[in-house]
Design a protein around this nucleic acid. Sequence first.
DNA 1: CGCGTTACAGTTATCGTTATAGTAAGGCGG
DNA 2: CCGCCTTACTATAACGATAACTGTAACGCG
Lengths: 339, 339
Amino acid sequence: MAVRLKDIAQDLGLSVVTVSKVLRDHPDIGEETRKRVLKRAKELNYQPNLAARSLITGRTWTIGLVVPDLLHPFFAQIAKELSAEVRKKGYSLFISSSDEDPALEQQEIAQLVARRVDVLVIASSQWTVEGFRRIEEENIPYILLDRQFAGFESNFVGVDDRAVGLLATRHLIEQGCRRIAHVRGPEISTAVGRLEGYRQALAGAQMTPLPGHIVSIGTSGDHRGERGGYEATVKLLSSPQRPDGIFCFNDPVALGAMRALLDAGLRIPEDVAVVGCGNLSYSDFLRVPLSSVDQGSKKIGKAAAAMALKLAHNKTARRPKKELIPPHLVVRASSLRAS
Amino acid sequence: MAVRLKDIAQDLGLSVVTVSKVLRDHPDIGEETRKRVLKRAKELNYQPNLAARSLITGRTWTIGLVVPDLLHPFFAQIAKELSAEVRKKGYSLFISSSDEDPALEQQEIAQLVARRVDVLVIASSQWTVEGFRRIEEENIPYILLDRQFAGFESNFVGVDDRAVGLLATRHLIEQGCRRIAHVRGPEISTAVGRLEGYRQALAGAQMTPLPGHIVSIGTSGDHRGERGGYEATVKLLSSPQRPDGIFCFNDPVALGAMRALLDAGLRIPEDVAVVGCGNLSYSDFLRVPLSSVDQGSKKIGKAAAAMALKLAHNKTARRPKKELIPPHLVVRASSLRAS
DNA sequence: CGCGTTACAGTTATCGTTATAGTAAGGCGG
DNA sequence: CCGCCTTACTATAACGATAACTGTAACGCG
């Protein structure tokens, strides 16, 4: 069925090893022989059996990616970029989506570890770091994506979340907002970082969050956060001092927030300005186009790919490296007040 | 480093083969031995080396998926569903995104073929079927997704595109539209099918497309179709008989169309009703929420997974099977006229 | 002329698993 | 007691490639 080294060798009256050497550009092969082998290999459309190669080299030329939700454009973008980048170097990418379920995530990691992927890239929805120790035991290098763990050393690529909060909040201040609220996300590093940035920006302007102006999206079934954003905003509006600006953890939350504001008869951005994070496509087509902090998911994907390729080649473990991508703000109507 | 069968065998004073048999639930093993092996395997957290297993069985327990654009929610949804379904049966999924580039797609297919995936699932952006013959030569079963090729027999899973066109157009007719235009997509089966459905629905109501009322989105750099939808609609509006309803090839095209309509000072749906296809998330948050035909991407993913698993097990080639998922219409404001 | 070097190719062992065939021990009927 | 089946396990040879080593000419140099 499939062509093997043996077939080429027999055709040309050479040994298997000689053919193998030619195809791997080994030096000690004569010009004549090399040409004959290459010609025949091409004719037969020879493709090496990667299972056999992996068996002896111990490398699989595969990389594993685990994300919480492939449907989320942020992760889809990263997956796409990562796949394209590593493909250029001959790697293929296993992708799996954990549905934000830590147990499922563990299973998928175990499966990829069993496949001996050369590198694992994980945007984890884990609460603890215990699972990562297991990967370390198997000596498989891995990279955490987007979400970090406090006090845990590891390779990491993600956006600078503090800068996200800073950018968004400073922008609202510049637009003249004086009572800026924050709808924060769950207890993961991204939400914590953005909250810190928010506080820092306020502090930089001699401001402080008003009581009740930091609300959290619940853990309602809707994991994208639209409903959470809606409900959190309803809560915000019942606060004694109504906010005139809201920085939302992400875009779906911001969409929910905007719906709540419009439902309450408020104008965006005149009464309340809104900024989200993620810069989802279609933001231009919304009822009120949404200002948003772009996380540079393409850059994150490229950076993760570069780091993964480096790890795949340096089998010797190095000190973990962190790479923070600077975010940038995309201003649209939802936060643009007449000056 | 990693635990091998040999390690377990030596620990228990058994042969490698016996251990292997236990772990594969082979019948001719004594109860006592079986227990001891399972216990030790668990203790050592044994994971079989899949490369070695593949080498001898010829199966890799992997499935390859190639899509034109992973960022497109339709394909992301399918990828996610496919991954989840096949993972349950112990398969892992290679995913790659071809960027709508036929040459790149060929490369990615070649790479997956070289990896001897058990099944290939392809949403192709190819113009010819030549590439698929190569896959057949390698005896790898494959499934076409979403896009078919006229006169070419193959396994296929996708939406019933004629039904898409029928549903959307009949709905516009029911809403009282009398001059229904269609912004069609490129020369691929999905666009052709939807166009046929559109014509059929009109014919069923003794109507016929007015001259100039079928326009095509160009092949502008923007492959999502927003710009194409905008420009096509501008063209439509200059037609002597202005349409009062537009069925758009997909949602991005519809977004472009709606922007063009609003820019021209027209009201949606009072002056012109709009229906798209794809039912993207966030449709609820648009300036005018968009009516859309849902393609049932989840069902497509599940159906593709089921078919792939079947193909992976029946090594004997069968007659190609086609599976058409029925679409359904989601009515929102963009097409809902007061009755 | 002998020795080392270079160019080229082949031999052998190995990766971890499974397919195939085989064997020892015990039971059972005749 | 013999032959013949079961039961439970083992020995050996693959699978297709690569790593590490071994030969063998031919050639240059002192």
